[in-house]
């Protein structure tokens, strides 16, 4: 299992509340049967006009090329459950997101792919965004061990559920195999689920 303790890198500031997964990944790309090309489509309709010409967008901005941290505002990733949105962001090179808040399903999808979504208050987001705007080549450090984000001479605290934080650190965040090893417990437990047993229990 992969241990995720710190994420260090340059960051992209993406302003705006309620940025939904339809914007992150336009629905027409959900027709593809693999996630392989999702990096090409991320924020497509905001990054390109109908002739394929680049529009002004942080994901197009050369100044942020190579970033691996994304900074967002409130309710990021709301709407559709499409994992394609997270796959696009991940394949674009992002491996941690700092924001004021995340939609539930989006955050779950991120966790499944080993992308920590860490929560900081609106002031700190504004400060961070300004910092990376002015210093796009200076690295930001997210330490899951100290629960602090460092940038320049600043340090801010972030929130993340503690058990989840520890599982990133210990490399136990991907629970598929673990849930699978619990199969005998599952078989035993479901004997008491009424609708699986003719409603006799």
């Amino acid at each position: 299992m992969i241990e995720i303790k710190t994420i260090i890198g340059t960051a992209i500031p993406l302003t705006g509340d309620n940025i939904n997964t339809d914007r992150i990944m336009p629905a027409r790309y959900l027709k593809e049967i693999t996630f392989n090309d999702m990096d090409k489509y991320v924020f497509f309709d905001e990054r390109f006009d109908k002739n394929g010409k680049e529009k002004k967008h942080q994901f197009n901005d050369k100044k942020f090329a190579g970033a691996n941290i994304l900074i967002v505002n409130k309710n990021f990733g709301c709407g559709s459950s499409r994992e394609h949105a997270v796959q696009g962001i991940k394949r674009f090179g992002i491996n941690a997101i700092i924001g004021e808040s995340f939609s539930h399903i989006f955050a779950e999808n991120c966790t499944k792919l080993g992308i920590p979504c860490v929560i900081v208050n609106a002031n700190s987001v504004a400060k961070l965004m300004k910092f990376v705007q002015d210093n796009s080549q200076i690295k930001v450090n997210i330490s899951l061990e100290t629960k602090k984000i460092s940038f320049g001479n600043e340090r801010v605290d972030f929130e993340i559920p503690d058990a989840m934080r520890l599982s990133f650190i210990n490399g136990t965040w991907n629970i598929t195999e673990l849930m699978r090893t619990n199969v005998d417990i599952v078989k035993e437990k479901i004997k008491s689920i009424s609708y699986l047993n003719g409603f006799v229990r």
Partner: peptide, 13 residues
């Protein structure tokens, strides 16, 4: 009724 086990992530299976 549907709880199987608590997981190290703080989630419930």
């Amino acid at each position: 009724i549907h709880t199987i086990k608590e997981l190290p992530t703080g989630q419930t299976q």
